[in-house]
């Protein structure tokens, strides 16, 4: 579903951010992207949601090859993805339901189909009772849940989360992480960049460790190697 094939990414000012990165994420998988700051995690996520394009190599997203994707096709591909950030990026002057509904409106969903969908999504993230609240009236964990609801408006195949628990306390972190697990259990793949090694250790999910722009460790390779060894 997502495939990086010998991807290099170089920025004009800061130089090489990724060097020969290759990995595949299957449908319905949950993958942690770990590594120190500046390792290249965010660059990988940007390449996935087509905010950046590789300098060399190929990224495949839902069957589309990055070098063949035309600019006008990017929005349509993005509708197959959901993106969540550390800083939530909610619109402060709109209510929770307006924030989620806005994402539906701008992708051309018919007006009569918006309220039931917003209501279903807010129920899914456990915020049905806060529909008319403004973001400033919510806790950090709740704001991140709104951002997750918004990321789910297009029923994405994959949810890309860039340090989604980075601004949250431990309790909110657990709750947001559990929500991401629930979403994953319903069939949406999740790629989560994180610094929080506690969460990673407890979860026993695939880990892709990035260091100095390269894949330093991929637990999927490890387990495959283990399987081969066992056979």
């Amino acid at each position: 579903m997502i495939r990086f094939a010998s991807v290099f990414k170089e920025y004009p000012r800061t130089g090489l951010a990724l060097s020969d990165v290759s990995f595949t994420v299957q449908k319905g998988e949950f993958v942690f992207l770990t590594g120190p700051s500046g390792a290249g995690k965010s660059t990988i996520l940007k390449l996935i949601y087509l905010d950046e394009f590789p300098s060399k190599g190929d990224v495949w997203i839902a069957g589309a090859r990055s070098r063949q994707v035309k600019r006008r096709e990017v929005p349509l591909l993005r509708r197959k993805l959901g993106v969540v950030f550390q800083d939530f990026r909610l619109l402060d002057d709109r209510t929770v339901e307006a924030n989620v509904g806005f994402a539906l409106e701008v992708t051309g969903v018919p007006r009569d189909r918006i309220p039931p969908k917003v209501s279903r999504l807010l129920t899914q993230v456990g915020l049905a009772s806060k529909a008319t609240a403004y973001p400033r009236e919510l806790s950090g964990g709740e704001q991140q849940r709104v951002a997750i609801a918004r990321a789910l408006v297009n029923d994405p195949m994959v949810l890309v989360a860039d340090e989604p628990t980075g601004n949250l306390d431990e309790r909110a972190t657990r709750s947001v992480f559990q929500l991401l697990r629930d979403i994953n259990a319903l069939g949406t793949a999740v790629i989560m960049a994180t610094h929080d090694l506690d969460v990673v250790r407890r979860a026993d999910l695939r880990v892709l460790e990035i260091n100095r722009g390269q894949v330093a460790f991929d637990s999927a390779d490890d387990s495959r190697a283990g399987t081969r060894d066992a056979s």
Binding site: P75, R78, R79, L91, V106, T107, A151
Partner: peptide, 16 residues
């Protein structure tokens, strides 16, 4: 800026 950024993120077209 924030709205435009969100519009782009959720897949709104440039003409929109």
């Amino acid at each position: 800026g924030p709205e435009i950024s969100i519009m782009r993120m959720v897949g709104a077209t440039d003409s929109f």
